[in-house]
Design a protein around this nucleic acid. Structure first.
Ligand SMILES: Nc1ccn([C@H]2C[C@H](O)[C@@H](COP(=O)(O)OP(=O)(O)OP(=O)(O)O)O2)c(=O)n1
Length: 1118
DNA sequence: TTCCGGTCCTAC
DNA sequence: TCAGGTAGGACCGGAA
């Protein structure tokens, strides 16, 4: 039984010391008189409100300080938070404005800015629940329902001198109580006794009112509707137009009598009561038909072809039965334009690998070779111990050999001549045996064992192999034309897809991703969140703690809101408008019903927050504990249960990360946490802080300890829990939408060719490899299996960082920067595996046919042979160019951020082509290439520096250069130049000139670009600097900090904040003394930071500003 | 006290 | 089986 907290009956002085101190602390930058008055003098309005509500806080006559209104509001919010146990933060808009206008004025922080910053930081992890904005009070009132708190404009300035009031029409204030708003003749809303009594709802839960009006700085704020933390927020949000029907008063009376359930009762539901409840309330009246996908159109493959966008790919062994051999088929799971789920089974794809034909091998040896290999393979199969007959073994392990022409990808051999290779085809198991046999030697030509040396493409994933050979790309479209393929009747289907088609690879049309095939199919995404019983202080353990709720949101890609909300609840649960609530008698029923729901809804993408490592494994573990095999049948493959494995992905880019790996065949697990972890560097990755960061919306967290209480309460408390649970299920959808993750990932999948799920479960290598394999296929190259050379000593030399001339530059510093340096080097110099020359031999390469790189390697020029890597890079750079163009045309700041992430991801993929060649633990290491790239890079930055310093000497360029230009710093591909000019405009002109001039000494497409001007520029050390960033002459875009504590996440926020403020003072105000003083003051405690700093330490209110967190990558001894 | 290697995170 | 690269600063703790 949950006790709804009563409206607090407290005067300020009766508040807990903590609250009092905090409020005093927060107010301490107001003048002492004001503070005194505020604390001591009751005002008529205050009395009125006190009578009504108990506690009140009225801030009078504080207009003498700037931004007093919002300041009061924040204080009020802070108090509100304490009083109602809720966390309310309404600072975002103030904060935004503060950011817009700058935090400081004459070196001093605006009180508002300070308050907003402070509040933001202190409450970073708190709950914000700003539900809706309303243009008018009356409209807002029409949306009120129980447990709603309101922000209304409340004129707090009426008693102050008109002169003082000038510019301040109202301030924020707070009333703890419930009130109705009224609009007076001046259009100012004031709560009155009458209006209060007329409040159209009768709710004991409504007890917060915060007033806010016009401020001369921030204009008129809209009414903001807030809810306290245990309010039924979700409903208001889901269906703002609908009023909740009045709850019968008998309910609460009955509930009050009910005894709190015993601990042992927590998990079980009384079956009789449950049935009675269902009967009485008519619950569980949802319609499963609404969960289904749309029906398949008539005339499939007769009237219409079937085109699907492919989301998941899987190879599998199909037992051919007695009369046939096993085969490897490929399932392409996808969705057509009608939103049907379709599985296209490609039945005649055979995995294969190659080896170079031994010397003298000809077509006449094929039969002997094939026989010898097949013998050895089936012998080895028999040694493996099996009950199968010999003939069956032979059939199952049939190997086929074929002579094909091609060339090892590595090295240029002087011509385009192709060499004979043997292509080995067979089932996956036969192939792996064949690989072993070939390594040991096979009597291929009838005169003894032949060792064939390197195998080619023998270590490539079946899925990637299929895709690269056929040209299918991740998230690309394939089509089965009319009259081709065979529809599998329902009874014989292997999958739960609506449509299953078996087709030969030669009948499958693979569309290039262009035109109409750029579209995105109407895919279904289910976002889910579970709640578990849990015990105090113990993390839920699947072997003990039951799953009590599973909330699901179903959305179709492209639509903004979910069309289906289904929550599975253990026990009875009051209805939630707009949602299907499925009350379940037992946990078993809950889990099985949910699994069935997933099978009916048949989503293509499963999402949620940390579902990969928590929710899904928990459900599956729980199913195991309870012995519910049906629950594990979540995938589309009928006979395959979903299982959980531990998978560790370690890379230098992302460190070592232990993840679970769950196979839900045919569905992609698109965990938002994984997306955010990969794409954004944040200080905290909780759903709460991520939502706040991107959506300025927070999750409604139920205290974990509350969950069992809510669960073991009644249908109303479980309803409340369901509402929270659903909120947690919808936030991931919102995040995906806002961050455009699905779209961006699809683009990446299409460009690199890998399946969607690889982008979240694997690294950069597979993308590059996929692109290389595609180019190899087109150019008849074979990728050799490189034996992993156990740490072959040294790595290779990287880039140059020019020794910085440290100092503070109170003059414009121009920055020149090569566009995509390493990719352009590789393109310009045609660096590739296939152009690398081991040792130039005059018999096949003339001097003009190759170059020697600064690191001493030789590569054929493009006139002899175009490298594959340069082609890949051109594709990637072209895509990036489009992304950058979209970025340039975008106006919205948030979308800009997202698009920037997109172009950055493409840039990293392009740079990873170089990284791939340097990855010694990779599939295709080639340090010759990576070494040459960095060597060219080093040469180029040196040339750029000397060129700039040579050309732009005093008096050069028609006297535009006042002094000898000096390169004061540079890193890898950039130089920071001091031209000695006075204005940003001049620096830009010379910078632009230098960029075009210096570019000319480098071969295309290498291009030096003028990027920006820093003015002023503070150069602290290598990779550590700050400056005001100018891209247009008149105003700086931002303050740019590189490598400094402000951008590092391994120190506490206090350090970052103080340093940030110092730098701003230094760079924007150019006031070194003030910056220094500020720092000193912070340290000695004599500035506006003092109060909260002391407060922080003395009262231990919130130590979030002092928390240092770092990742632990190496597991030490515990 | 200085040096060095390990760790973390960042700039390219 | 999987895993893009190198350079480098700040900080810490232990050895010299
Ligand atoms: N994650 C990264 C970033 C950079 N580099 C290397 C390759 C880049 O070509 C070079 C320069 O890095 P920049 O950050 O300046 O990026 P680019 O020059 O590639 O792109 P652009 O300057 O066009 O944004 O450093 C890299 O290997 N990996």
């Amino acid at each position: 039984m949950v006790r709804i907290p009563p409206a607090p009956i407290k005067k300020f002085e009766d508040l807990p010391l903590l609250v009092k101190n905090r409020v005093i602390g927060l107010l301490s930058n107001l003048t002492p008189e004001i503070r005194l008055e505020y604390l001591q003098n009751d005002l008529p309005e205050g009395e009125l409100l006190e009578q009504l509500t108990g506690a009140w806080l009225y801030l009078k006559d504080i207009s003498t300080i700037s931004q007093s209104g919002p300041t009061c509001g924040l204080v009020a919010l802070q108090m509100a938070m304490q009083l109602i146990g809720a966390s309310l933060v309404a600072v975002d808009d103030i904060l935004d404005k503060a950011r817009e206008q700058g935090y400081t004025k004459n070196g001093e922080m605006y009180s508002t800015s300070y308050m907003a910053l402070l509040a933001n930081d202190l409450w970073d992890s708190s709950v914000v629940s700003c539900v809706s904005h309303f243009p008018s009070a009356s409209e807002m009132v029409s949306h009120l329902h129980e447990s709603t708190a309101i922000l209304i404009p409340y004129d707090c300035d009426r008693n102050i001198e008109p002169a003082l009031r000038k510019g301040h029409s109202a301030h924020w204030g707070i009333v703890v109580g419930y009130l109705l708003v009224d609009t007076n003749e001046k259009g100012i809303c004031t709560p009155t006794r009458e209006s209060i009594s007329q409040l159209p709802i009768n709710s004991p839960n409504l007890y917060l009112l915060i007033a806010q009006g016009k401020s001369r700085y921030y204009g008129l704020h809209p009414y903001i509707l807030l809810e306290k933390s245990n309010a039924q927020l979700y409903e208001a949000e889901m269906s703002p137009r609908k009023r909740r029907p009045a709850t019968p008063t008998t309910g609460s009376a009955k509930r009050a009598k009910q005894e709190p359930p015993e601990e042992s009762d927590l998990k079980s539901v009384d079956p009789n009561e449950f049935e009675a409840y269902l009967k009485k309330t008519g619950s569980n009246k949802y319609d499963k038909a609404t969960w289904q996908r749309p029906p398949i159109p008539h005339g499939v493959l007769q009237l219409n072809s079937v085109a699907i966008q492919v989301f998941d790919i899987e190879t599998y062994q199909e037992n051919g039965g007695n009369d046939s051999y096993d085969r490897t088929n490929v399932k392409l799971y996808g969705v057509n334009r009608e939103s049907n789920s379709v599985c296209v089974i490609v039945t005649d794809h055979f995995p294969h690998f190659y080896f170079q034909a031994p010397n003298g091998f000809g077509a006449e040896h094929l039969e002997q070779a094939q026989r010898a290999l097949n013998n050895q393979v089936s012998n080895s199969a028999r040694r493996g111990g099996t009950s199968a007959t010999m003939s069956q073994l032979v059939a199952d392990n049939l190997i086929h050999l074929k002579i094909v022409e091609g060339e090892n990808l590595y090295f240029y051999r002087g011509s385009e001549k192709k060499y004979p290779f043997l292509k080995v085809t067979g089932t996956a198991s036969a192939l792996s045996k064949a690989k072993n046999e070939l390594r040991n030697g096979v009597n291929l030509m009838g005169h003894g064992l032949v060792n064939v040396g390197t195998l080619y493409e023998a270590n490539i994933d079946g899925e990637v192999k299929f895709m690269t050979k056929t040209g299918v790309v991740g998230c690309g479209w394939v089509e089965v034309p009319i009259g081709k393929g065979k529809i599998v009747p329902d009874a014989q289907k292997l999958t739960r897809c609506q449509l299953e088609i078996r087709v030969s690879v030669k009948d499958l049309i693979i569309h290039d991703t262009e035109g109409e095939w750029l579209d995105i199919a109407p895919i279904r995404t289910v976002s889910l969140d579970i709640e578990c019983m849990g015990r105090r202080g113990v993390f839920p353990d699947a072997s003990e703690d039951s799953v009590i709720q599973i909330a699901n949101m179903v959305k179709i890609e492209g639509q903004s809101e979910p069309f289906l909300r289904v929550c599975f609840v253990l026990g009875t649960c009051a209805p939630v408008i707009g949602s299907d609530i499925v009350c379940c008698k037992t946990e078993r029923e809950l889990l099985e019903q949910w699994a069935e729901f997933i099978r009916i809804v048949d989503p293509d993408i499963l999402t949620g927050y940390n579902i990969l490592n928590f929710d899904l494994p928990y459900i599956l573990d729980r199913a195991k504990v309870l012995k519910l095999p049906q629950v594990a049948l979540l995938g589309r493959q009928k006979d395959k249960a979903s299982g959980v494995r531990d998978a560790v992905l370690s890379s230098k880019q992302m460190g070592s990360r232990v993840n679970k790996s769950i196979d839900i065949h045919g569905r992609v697990i698109f965990d938002v946490l994984q997306v955010v972890l990969r794409d954004y560097k944040l200080r905290s990755y909780t759903l709460n802080s991520v939502s706040y960061h991107f959506l300025t919306e927070q999750k409604e967290d139920v205290d974990h300890t509350m969950i069992p209480t809510l669960q073991s309460g009644d249908d109303q408390t479980r309803r409340r829990l369901a509402v929270y649970c659903m909120k947690d299920a919808i936030l991931p959808l919102r995040l995906l939408d806002k961050l455009m993750s699905v779209i961006n990932y699809m683009e990446m999948a299409r460009v690199t060719g890998v399946p969607l799920n690889y982008l979240l479960t694997r690294g950069q290598q597979i993308k590059i490899l996929s692109m290389i394999l595609r180019k190899c296929k087109a150019n008849r190259f074979f990728v050799p299996v490189i034996e992993h050379q156990g740490n072959d000593g040294e790595g290779f030399e990287g880039a140059t960082v020019i020794e910085p001339h440290r100092g503070f530059y109170n003059e414009p510093i121009a920055t020149l920067d090569f566009a995509s340096l390493y990719p352009s080097i590789m393109i310009a110099h045609n660096l590739c595996y296939s152009t690398l020359i081991q040792k130039p031999d005059p018999t096949y390469v003339k001097d003009q046919d190759y170059i020697q790189t600064p690191s001493g390697q030789f590569f054929a020029t493009r006139t002899r042979r175009r490298g594959l890597l340069p082609e890949i890079l051109e594709d990637l750079l072209a895509t990036r160019k489009r992304a950058k163009n979209d970025l340039k045309n975008e106006k919205d700041e948030f979308r800009k951020m997202v698009l920037n992430g997109r172009q950055m991801a493409l840039k990293i993929s392009a740079n990873s082509v170089y990284g791939f060649t340097g990855a010694t633990v990779g599939k295709l290491p080639c340090l010759e290439i990576s070494q040459s790239v960095t060597a060219f890079g080093r040469q180029m930055i040196d040339m750029t520096k000397s060129e700039v310093e040579k050309i732009y000497i005093k008096g050069a360029r028609d006297g535009k250069c006042p002094i000898n230009a000096k390169v004061i710093y540079g890193d890898t591909d950039s130089v920071m130049v001091k031209f000695g000019v006075k204005s940003v405009k001049e620096a830009m002109e010379i910078g632009l000139d230098a960029a075009t001039t210096v570019s000319k000494i480098f071969p295309a497409p290498i291009k030096l670009e003028f990027e920006k001007v820093y003015y002023p520029y503070l150069l602290i050390n290598k990779k550590r600097y700050a400056g005001l960033y100018f891209t247009k002459p008149d105003k700086h875009d931002k303050m740019d900090c590189k490598g400094l504590e402000t951008v590092r996440r391994d120190n506490c926020p206090l350090v970052a904040k103080v340093l940030g403020t110092c730098l701003e003072t230094l760079l924007v105000d150019r006031n070194a003394d003030a910056a220094l003083n500020f720092a000193k003051k912070v340290i000695s405690g004599y500035c506006i930071f003092k109060n909260w700093f002391l407060d922080l330490l003395c009262n231990r209110i919130d130590i979030s500003m002092l928390i240092i967190s770092k990742e632990l990558t190496k597991a030490g001894d515990i």
